[in-house]
């Protein structure tokens, strides 16, 4: 491992020996995960493999029981989530967490304000403001411009997933962690999400948990497979498709035919 400053530019995300314990149960154990800047990585694994627990440790939603997490070379293992956000980390959740009572515009405004760490402002939300302009830009990227004054509770499932991506893109993210962005989407809505993911700026690092093999393999250049809380295999999509272990535990042996 390099000791000099070049390490700062080496990896977007560098997790070493990550473990997360709930009582006597290790949800994940001894996980090493290295993601280069700009890399598109998919994380696969059957239910209960520990994918979301690993995400929660990487983002700071949960504190690691063991190991270290580095973001662009900086040790963030003990940092709360709002500090990691300022370093360029963004995440989405498996089950859409959105503010039902707010409009799309207000939600995106908060996404921008949150990254900037400004919240104690008691002046009105309306008016000309850089953050509102940024919110409108995000609505456009997420394909929701015509819905920006709608309440979040009125959006369709697919639009909610688009909004989540819009939130994650606030203020130049550097690393996106997306937890099953396509979960619950209809086959008709999936290509739209795929296109949105593939249109992300090249310099943004994306790590996504995905059950939909097609989206995962289409949008990612490398794949990590978790099983029973441990790393089972890593490699290119092709290598993973050929991997015997992966076939055994995840694909049930019959996927590649």
């Amino acid at each position: 491992m390099p000791v000099n400053g070049t390490q700062n530019h080496a990896n977007a995300l560098d997790a070493r020996g990550i473990g997360k314990r709930f009582g006597g149960f290790w949800a994940v154990q001894d996980i090493n995960l290295t993601v280069r800047p700009g890399e598109r990585r998919a994380i696969l694994g059957p239910n209960g493999a520990g994918k979301t627990s690993l995400f929660n440790v990487l983002t700071g939603d949960l504190t690691a029981s063991a190991g270290t997490v580095r973001l662009f070379g900086q040790d963030v293992t003990r940092e709360p989530i709002h500090k990691r956000i300022r370093r360029g980390l963004r995440r989405s959740y498996q089950h859409a967490h959105l503010f039902e009572g707010l409009t799309v515009r207000e939600t995106l405004f908060l996404a921008v304000a949150g990254v900037q760490g400004s919240w104690a402002q008691v002046w009105p939300l309306k008016g000309s403001d850089k953050r509102l302009a940024e919110a409108d830009r995000l609505a456009e990227v997420a394909g929701l411009t015509s819905f920006s004054e709608r309440a979040v509770s009125e959006l369709s499932h697919g639009q909610r997933r688009q909004l989540e991506i819009g939130i994650a893109l606030a203020e130049n993210p550097r690393v996106l962690l997306l937890d099953e962005p396509a979960a619950g989407l209809s086959p008709a809505e999936r290509p739209k999400l795929s296109a949105l993911l593939m249109a992300l700026p090249q310099e943004v690092t994306v790590v996504l948990i995905e059950h939909d093999m097609e989206i995962a393999l289409q949008t990612s250049e490398s794949v990590s497979v978790l099983y029973n809380g441990r790393m089972l295999a890593e490699g290119t999509p092709d290598a993973i498709m050929q991997n015997e272990d992966v076939h055994q535990v995840y694909l049930g042996g019959g996927y590649a035919q």
Binding site: R91, E106, W119
Partner: peptide, 28 residues
């Protein structure tokens, strides 16, 4: 304060979903 201001939007968002407010970077 709650319906029309920035701080109010933060409060309303927190009432809906604390975890997400945290994930947006707000010091909860």
């Amino acid at each position: 304060l709650i319906q029309k201001t920035r701080f109010g939007a933060v409060i309303r968002a927190g009432v809906d979903d604390q975890a997400m407010l945290r994930a947006l970077g707000f010091p909860i």
